[in-house]
Nucleic acid binder design. Sequence first.
DNA 1: GCTCTCAAGTCAACATAGTTGACGTGAAGA
DNA 2: TCTTCACGTCAACTATGTTGACTTGAGAGC
Lengths: 156, 156
Amino acid sequence: MQKTVSQAPGLHRASLKKLHELDAALELMYYGWRGMTLLADQYLETVGLSRPHHRILYVVARRPDISIGALIEVLGISKQALNRPLGLLLERKLVAAKRSPEQHRSKLLRLTAAGQRIEQRASDHERKVLREAFDRVGAPGTAAWMAVMGAIADDN
Amino acid sequence: MQKTVSQAPGLHRASLKKLHELDAALELMYYGWRGMTLLADQYLETVGLSRPHHRILYVVARRPDISIGALIEVLGISKQALNRPLGLLLERKLVAAKRSPEQHRSKLLRLTAAGQRIEQRASDHERKVLREAFDRVGAPGTAAWMAVMGAIADDN
DNA sequence: GCTCTCAAGTCAACATAGTTGACGTGAAGA
DNA sequence: TCTTCACGTCAACTATGTTGACTTGAGAGC
């Protein structure tokens, strides 16, 4: 499963001619995303999981007793797409489903202790990358970064 | 192919409890990436292409006469993974391959006029999102954003 | 000139993450 | 009671990536 040493773990910011002023920013977004997720993905691979599993764990950790329907909504994928990765997490007892007696219609999902540990470690890898970057630019730079990202995210 | 109207085009920044200080930044990166690529992906879908095709077009546009081997290197994927999307682009004459007489070993790739047009339009969607966000925060904020993203990207 | 090697490139088989469609099931309202 | 409808599951398909096996042609050693 794990590569020997991975001669090209990401792609190391290629040197491309810039056709437009904003091409550099475009590429920064691409490599930034890769940079943030690279270590986390490598860790997840060692425990036999991947990005979609992490997204599920991340959300369930922050919304204990979430129903499947609500989880679908938050993740923005179809319920069928959720089915297999969530099935694996249940099978491996990283997520527990309970049916409340009165509310028999929907399952309520929670992380088990093992699930919490994996979620935390994977997210820690991502937060570490961010923290180091923020440390380099200080609080004002961090605030500016958040403002830009917020504007991009809300662009719709 | 195209959805009716897409009731949930992205996912609209869910309200999750923040377990860590940096969770908000984590989510901004996620939604930022989605925000930047959403319109471009929708456009690409209308011309029957998707993200990997765009990445190929983007690189070839900025490195005319690139060989397949070099393209693989820049994209960071296996040559087999490149094969199908590139095959489609060649078939649809968005990319042209020529073999130089003396250097018969490798194909040299270039965009056709049609390929250039599509690459430009797709990238324009992404640049537009960035430009609007940068405009909101001004030059210093933009510089800070670039610094942070550079630090994240180079984290390795 | 002949052969051997090796990178370039292609084809086939498979894994994973998503999609839509069809269906089962149980709670709740008419 | 019967119908409905959200919740959830199963099956089939598409797309994007992977590894492995193969072909082919350039260039090196003899």
